[in-house]
Design a protein around this nucleic acid. Structure first.
Length: 435
RNA sequence: UCCUCAGUAGCUCAAUGGUAGAGCAUUCGGCUGUUAACCGAAGGGUUGUAGGUUCGAGUCCUACCUGAGGAGCCA
C-alpha cells in the first residue's frame, strides 16, 4: 500500500511514490500538461500531470478539477527548483473525494477581496496561506506561554467563565440568564480567583477566554479574547515585572525558532523581533508624563494614556516599554499603593513596540484587610459580592501580584498585523458575530 | 455612544447630471513547464433601501440600513 504523507514531510520521501490527501489550491493547465497545486494544511505541493503518460480519463479529471475540491493524489516526489516549496509530484493517480461544482464555485479566488467579504467567509478564509501562517504563530505563542509557566513552578488553575458579579466593577459585562431568576456575567478577568489559587498553590496561572461588552470599535479590540494571567504569592511589583519580561523574551524566541517560515510569509521584519531582549526599558508614570509633555502631548498628570500617547512613548524604543507607578485614580480598586507615595499604585503596563500598545497590565495587589475594605467602599462596590475575596486578607494574607496578557494583541504585534481580527479563528467584535 | 469615509456584475473596481463598463471568477475553444499562467469568445446588473430635486439621477438632497477607519474605554 502506498504510504500517506503530509507535504511538510516531502523532503524525506524524494524518489518515493506516496499519497497525499488535501484540497486543490490552484490549477494551471495547457492542452497536454496540467499543474494542480495541492494544499493539505501542512504545505503546498505542485503536481504535474502529463497527458501522454496518463490514462485519458485521469487526465480529463485533473484538467476539469475545481478550486478547493478535496482530492487524494498518488505520485512520485521529486526535488524541483521551479516548484513552490522545492518539491514536486509526478501524478500517477487521483481520487476526487468531493468536487466543488461550477454552479457554486469556491468564493475566495486568488485575487483581491475586501474586508467585509473575507470576514463573511472567515470559515473559508482560514484556508488561505496568510491566515494559516497567523494561526500557526498564535499556536506557537500559546505553547510558549504554557511552557514558560509550566517550567517555572506555576500550576495551571483555570478560573470560571460564569461569574456572579463584576471583577473590577468598571467595564461593561455580558449578562446571561442563569436558571430561574438569577443572572450571571461572562468573566472579564480571572484575576480575583487567581489571588485565591495563588494562596493555595504559591504560583498559578489561568488561560482562557475573556469577555468585554465595551462598544470599542478599533483595530485593537475584540469582545471575546484570550488572556493568560499568572499570579504569585509572596511577590511584589519587581517580581511581576521580571516575570513579564522573561515570559515575553521566551515567547518571541520560541516563535523565531519554530515559525520562521510563517513570519517570512507574513513579511515580518524579524530583525525587530530578534532585538527583543532583556532588560526592557522601564520608566515611572511621572517620567512618562514628562516625556509626553516634552513631545507636545496635551496629557496632564492623573489621566491614562491615549493611543497616540502610547505610540509617542514607544516610538524611540526597540523593545517593549514598562511603565509603572500609576495614579490610583484611574486604576482598579485592588492595586497596592506605593509605600513612599499613596497617590500612586504599584501597577505596571507593558507597551509593545512599533505602536502596538498595551499588551500586559498588572501589578501588586492590596493585602491589608482594612485598606481593601476602604478601597471597596471608595469605589462604591457591593461588599457582599467580595466576601470571599476579603477572606483572603484574613487568613494568611501575603504581598502578591500578577498580570494579564492579551494573546491576540501579542500575536498581532509578533506577526506585524494591521488588525487584531486576523489573530483568532473566529473573531467576535462589535457588530460581528458571524460566522 | 460620537466623528469621518464607503456601498455599482459572484469578487476587486471604473463611469462630467445624458445609451452602466473593465479585470478576475464561471462556461466554451486553443496551448507540453505553468508560477495570481497566457490567448480568443460567451453569459452575468432593481447601481444598499425609501423618498425628493430634475426634461433626465449610479452621480445632487433627506432619512434609514450595512460595512470600514478613528475617539472614549481597555488586554
Amino acid at each position: 500500500m502506498t504510504p500517506r504523507i503530509t507535504i511538510d514531510e516531502a523532503g524525506k520521501h524524494a524518489g518515493e511514490t506516496v499519497q497525499i490527501a488535501g484540497w486543490l489550491y490552484n490549477l494551471r493547465r495547457s492542452g497536454k500538461i496540467a499543474f494542480p497545486i495541492l494544499r493539505d494544511g501542512h504545505g503546498l505541493m505542485q503536481c504535474v500531470a502529463v497527458k501522454s503518460s496518463l490514462p485519458e480519463e485521469l487526465f480529463e479529471t485533473v484538467k476539469n478539477l475545481t478550486q478547493e475540491s478535496s482530492i487524494i493524489v498518488t505520485g512520485k516526489v521529486r526535488a524541483e527548483q521551479r516548484a513552490p516549496g522545492g518539491y514536486e509530484m509526478d501524478l500517477e493517480g487521483l481520487e476526487v473525494v468531493q468536487r466543488v461544482t461550477e454552479a457554486d464555485p469556491y468564493p475566495i479566488t486568488p485575487k483581491d477581496h475586501g474586508t467585509e467579504f473575507l470576514m463573511d467567509h472567515r470559515h473559508l478564509w482560514l484556508r488561505s496561506q496568510r491566515q494559516h501562517a497567523i494561526i500557526r504563530v498564535r499556536h506557537a505563542v500559546i505553547k510558549a506561554v504554557r511552557d514558560y509557566f509550566d517550567s517555572h513552578g506555576f500550576t495551571l488553575v483555570d478560573t470560571p467563565i460564569f461569574t456572579p458579579a463584576a471583577c473590577e466593577g468598571t467595564t461593561t459585562l455580558f449578562e446571561v440568564d442563569y436558571f430561574d431568576d438569577n443572572k450571571a456575567y461572562l468573566t472579564q478577568s480571572g484575576q480575583l480567583y487567581n489571588e485565591a489559587t495563588a494562596m493555595a498553590f504559591g504560583k498559578t496561572y489561568c488561560f482562557g477566554p475573556t469577555f468585554r461588552a465595551e462598544k470599542s470599535k478599533t483595530r485593537r479590540h475584540l469582545t471575546e479574547f484570550w488572556m493568560v494571567e499568572p499570579e504569585m504569592a509572596y511577590a511584589g511589583l519587581e517580581d511581576v515585572k521580571r516575570v513579564a519580561e522573561e515570559m515575553l523574551v521566551y515567547i518571541v524566541g520560541h516563535v523565531l525558532e519554530t515559525r520562521a517560515e510563517e513570519l517570512k510569509r507574513l513579511e515580518r521584519d524579524v530583525a525587530k523581533l530578534e532585538a527583543i531582549q532583556a532588560p526592557f526599558a522601564r520608566m515611572s508614570y511621572d517620567e512618562a508624563i514628562r516625556i509626553l509633555q516634552a513631545k507636545g502631548s496635551e496629557i496632564q498628570w492623573g489621566s491614562d494614556f491615549g493611543g497616540a500617547d502610547e505610540t509617542l512613548l514607544t516610538e524611540d524604543q526597540k523593545g517593549p516599554l514598562m511603565v509603572d507607578r500609576f495614579p490610583a485614580s484611574f486604576k482598579a480598586f485592588y492595586f497596592e499603593p506605593a509605600p513612599d507615595n499613596p497617590d500612586v499604585v504599584l501597577g505596571v503596563d507593558v507597551l509593545a513596540p512599533e505602536g502596538y500598545g498595551e499588551i500586559i497590565g498588572g501589578g501588586q495587589r492590596i493585602y491589608d484587610l482594612d485598606l481593601l475594605l476602604k478601597r471597596i467602599e471608595d469605589h462604591k462596590l457591593p461588599k457582599e459580592a467580595f466576601d470571599w475575596y476579603i477572606d483572603l486578607r484574613k487568613y494568611g494574607a501575603v504581598p502578591h501580584g500578577g498580570f494579564g496578557m492579551g494573546i491576540e494583541r501579542c500575536v498581532a504585534w509578533i506577526c506585524g498585523l494591521e488588525h487584531i481580527r486576523e489573530t483568532i479563528a473566529f473573531p467576535r467584535m462589535l457588530y460581528r458575530l458571524r460566522p
